[in-house]
Design a protein around this nucleic acid. Structure first.
Lengths: 143, 143
DNA sequence: TATTGTTATACTCTATAACTATA
DNA sequence: TATAGTTATAGAGTATAACAATA
């Protein structure tokens, strides 16, 4: 029989829908030309700085792609890049003060979104959602 | 102070991680050259067929992009396209038998993944996760 | 020799504009 | 005139290969 019966949409499909909702929330506002991809990288730079190769690994992207984003964010003044004095092959990426302010602004915006979601479904259920998501997304992170 | 303190990763970040896990699960196997984007479209074609413009709206994509994917999936033999006899501007997209088999195979693979996740975090917690995700992804769908 | 990072290149996905064919 | 769909084009994001600089 050439038909399909599914009782509910798949989780990947639902996540796609939620990511569209996030994008819509950000799309209304002015973010100085930065996009989600930039935020993802910018918010992953630790306070003490990080090498490009290690940053790429954390983000599951190639060092080539990572290097391109770092260069763009450095041009925009949100990151700066130094040569590591101990190993001059390594470039140490750090946030500028503007980069830190931007991260804080993104954190606040996403935090507000999540508070809204928590209000929609109830804080307890939202907390469970969030914890389960973290566990299945990164199953190796035992706490 | 040029530092950032966050108590936990953001939900969009976690969803990105989980989608990478899904991609990795599919990446190991042979799917006849089809990718997630093809599955998303193929699984959204209802049994009775659908016009390209309406399919595009459902998927929140442009009719141009939708038309390209439909053409590719028709070339591969998973969809076929008829001219609507009532309105000859309209193309009606339907799954072929091979298309239906592929949807069933994808459904089974995603279902197995979700069962694995449910086993990892417990079926009750997973059910809550899934229900909350559906509610915040599509808040207008009152049941 | 191995590793860090860059340059060059290509492919996927998405978006817009201009067009056609039907209504 | 309005709508369904296509063609053309460009940009964002990601991946691989080849390379340069340093260890």
């Amino acid at each position: 029989m050439n038909s399909v019966k599914r009782d509910h949409p798949h989780v990947p499909e639902l996540m796609g829908g939620l990511l569209l909702r996030v994008r819509a929330a950000f799309g209304d506002e002015d973010w100085d030309g930065l996009r989600q991809s930039h935020f993802r990288l910018l918010t992953s730079v630790p306070d003490q700085g990080i090498a490009i190769t290690e940053l790429a690994e954390r983000l599951s992207m190639t060092k080539q792609g990572c290097g391109q984003f770092v260069a763009a964010l450095a041009d925009s003044g949100y990151l700066h890049v130094d040569i590591d004095t101990a190993d001059r092959r390594v470039r140490v990426v750090r946030r500028t003060a503007a980069g830190t302010r931007m991260v804080q602004r993104v954190d606040a915006r996403v935090g507000a979104l999540e508070e809204q979601w928590a209000a929609e479904v109830g804080p307890r259920r939202y907390a469970t959602f969030r914890r389960v998501l973290a566990e299945i997304a990164y199953p190796d992170d035992r706490e």
